[in-house]
Each structure stands twice: as C-alpha cells, then as structure tokens.
Simulated scan of single mutants.
Amino acid sequence: MENPCRSDQSSHRAFKSYVLPKIGSFQKGIIHGDTNDKNIIVTPVGNGRHEVSGVLDFSSLMNDCYVFELAATIAYMMLENPSPLDVGGAILTGWESIMVLNEDERECLYLLVLGPLCQSLVYGRENLKKYPDNKDYLLVTAKNGTRILTQMWEMGKKEVERKWFTDASTFSVNE
C-alpha cells in the first residue's frame, strides 16, 4: 500500500482515512496511557542490562487499544536515545514476546507513533503560555521531537516500519 503520509493528505486526514477504519480490529484492554522514561523504573540485572521493575503514575489508565500504548512507548523512548529510530525494534521485541501485533496494528504503527510526538510538541508549546515557570519539563519533547518527526517523515512509513520490524526480528528476548 502507498504511504498515507506521502500524499497531499494531512496527518489528521491520514489518521481518519487509514487508522480509524482499522481500530475495530485492534486488541483492547487496560493501558497505562503515559509510558515514558519518567514513569518506568528499571533495575540493573548485570552486563549493562536492565529490566523493568516498576511503573509510576496511573492517572492516565484507560480501556483502549494496546497498540496505542506501544506507539506512545516507542515515541517517548525515542526522545532520549541518540539513535532514535533504533528504539522501535527493541521495544517491539519485548512487546511481541507477550502480545503479537495483528496485521492492522502493524500497518498503523508508524502513524500511531507520530501522534504522541506531535501531541507532545503542541501541548508543550500551548502549556508553556500558561506555565512559563515549568519550561524545562514542558519543552522536553521539543529538544529532540521535531528532529525525530522530520527524520521519520522524510524516511516515510515503509522505510521506518521496515527498520523497526527487521530490527525486532534480529533481537532475542532471551539474550
């Protein structure tokens, strides 16, 4: 299928025409709603490796699509990584060791990752007007978010997803 973001469609129209028709097939349940590096506790397990040992901030818990949680996790973990596009494959490996994405979820992942990045950039700028004393926190996404969005957009859906799913296939959860 053609990249829905490489036509004259806006990302909003791409979401409406490409993602919304598939939502009925997405796996659903209780999601955290705000999985980011500030809300995940990790414990060292040796050899420079860590494992998730806890999660904080349950104020955004909701019944929604699991792939939304995955997309937000990839988006926010990309922000602090020096090689942001390398994050997707590692997170997918862990995710799919527990819950395998269906074809519709896989086809929509690119757009779903763009969403939280865009949302965080817009909300950060808007909230800065209201809370200028909280500038450092509100603009944390702006530090790398615009660059990551631009890189993803220029690579396009097909290439970004090819990278994420190829990388995921090379990792072993039991390494």
Rank of each mutant, 00 (worst) to 15 (best):
G89R: 07
A90Y: 12
A90D: 14
I91A: 01
I91C: 00
I91K: 02
I91L: 14
L92H: 08
L92K: 05
L92F: 02
L92T: 01
T93L: 14
T93V: 07
T93C: 13
T93F: 08
G94S: 10
G94D: 04
W95M: 06
S97W: 01
S97E: 13
S97M: 08
S97Y: 09
I98E: 13
I98F: 14
I98S: 12
I98C: 13
I98H: 15
M99N: 10
M99F: 15
M99Y: 09
V100Y: 11
V100G: 10
V100I: 01
L101F: 13
L101W: 04
N102Y: 09
E103F: 13
E103H: 11
D104W: 03
D104T: 02
D104Y: 08
D104E: 13
D104S: 12
D104K: 11
E105H: 10
E105A: 05
E105L: 04
R106N: 01
R106Q: 14
R106K: 15
R106V: 03
E107W: 02
E107K: 06
E107F: 04
E107N: 09
C108H: 07
C108R: 07
C108Q: 07
L109R: 02
Y110A: 10
L111E: 00
L111S: 09
L111I: 15
L111F: 02
L112V: 11
L112P: 06
L112D: 07
V113P: 11
V113N: 00
V113M: 02
V113W: 00
V113C: 02
V113G: 01
V113D: 04
V113Q: 01
L114R: 12
L114G: 01
G115K: 14
G115H: 08
G115N: 10
G115V: 13
P116C: 04
P116F: 13
P116K: 00
P116Y: 06
P116I: 06
P116R: 01
P116M: 03
P116Q: 03
L117P: 09
L117Q: 04
L117E: 03
L117A: 08
C118Y: 08
C118H: 10
Q119E: 14
Q119M: 11
Q119L: 11
S120Y: 07
S120M: 06
S120L: 02
S120H: 08
S120Q: 13
L121R: 06
L121M: 09
V122C: 00
V122I: 10
V122H: 14
V122L: 10
Y123N: 12
Y123I: 05
Y123K: 09
G124K: 12
G124P: 00
G124D: 07
R125V: 05
R125H: 07
R125W: 05
R125C: 12
E126S: 07
E126Q: 09
E126M: 03
N127K: 05
